[in-house]
Design a binder for these strands. Structure first.
Ligand SMILES: [Mn+2]
Ligand SMILES: [Mn+2]
Ligand SMILES: [Zn+2]
Ligand SMILES: [Zn+2]
Lengths: 151, 151
DNA sequence: TATTTATTGAGAATACTTTTTAATAACTCC
DNA sequence: GGAGTTATTAAAAAGTATTCTCAATAAATA
């Protein structure tokens, strides 16, 4: 749960016998510069890259997202849509959680030190090495409460 | 976040112009009787039903799982596999959270009153109607920390 | 620089989930 | 209780996100 740079990522990859590539560096940069509150799907990232003139294949994007999520660099989020979203996994005090409307998927971010503490305490107690902890609140937003619901 | 019975489910469905069916009642019962710590995928549920001699189609299962999740009766869980898992959404003090190994998907359940409080406080503050809150901790279990990792 | 092999890109394949359709059956209102 | 309305079901087809395959490329290492 610390900050990554291109070179620290390279070190960690090389230590495990893996390789740093321009594709991985580019993807890391995009997430590092992503505005607060934005979350990218694989397809979003693909489009984002195309607009920048970068050509990275969808296969590579999927592979890289999964790799970085398992390394703890990215967080994999379920925001109620039919695909995963990703964002950079920031340490305290930028670490945050999500409140999601199950009907319209509107998402609000919020912080909580105590959740972070519970996460590290719990993983420590079980001997797990912590990568990320996310509190996801499923609820119905004010607008959807008023709407006559088709589901 | 309260306990459902077949008749309370029927009432809530009818209030919205929907219908109670034997399929929905059967599926509710299965989740109510599921052993602590067990989570079912759509396919798991389908097989479970077949063994009971019940014939409910996969489409109906998918529809019912989504319906009950949106109603707050079931929790939809991402346990690291390529499909969703479901369990009954129990109120305090049975409500719990999950610690997941990102490498082998081993899952441990744990309780936390304070997370529950944060969940209700946060949703209330934003005017959201709370359905469920889940703290998901992504980590590496002791066994996988020792293993030479292919990823 | 040469060697090794992890990684990439393109497309094919897979797997999960949703949609479509006609038939059925729950609910409502007499 | 019975008739009418329409939500729900089963089965199959379709859709879509994600993974896999494989030959070509290029990072790491010495
Ligand atoms: Mn976020
Ligand atoms: Mn559970
Ligand atoms: Zn909403
Ligand atoms: Zn593990």
């Amino acid at each position: 749960m610390s900050m990554y740079t291109a070179s620290s990522l390279k070190s960690e990859l090389n230590d495990r016998g893996w390789r740093m590539t321009p594709q991985r560096e580019t993807i890391l940069q995009i997430f590092q510069n992503l505005p607060k509150g934005e979350h990218l799907s694989a397809e979003d990232l693909y489009n984002h890259l195309q607009q920048m003139g970068e050509k990275i294949s969808l296969s590579t994007i999927y592979r890289t997202l999964k790799l970085m999520a398992r390394m703890g660099i990215l967080r994999e989020l379920e925001l109620g849509e039919d695909h995963k979203h990703y964002e950079i996994n920031q340490p305290y005090p930028y670490h945050h959680h999500h409140l999601i409307c199950v009907k319209c998927n509107k998402t609000i971010e919020f912080k909580s030190d105590s959740v972070l503490k519970i996460g590290s305490k719990t993983s420590q107690k079980e001997g797990y090495h912590l990568l990320d902890c996310q509190l996801t609140i499923h609820a119905v937003c004010p607008a959807c409460q008023r709407a006559i619901s088709p589901l």
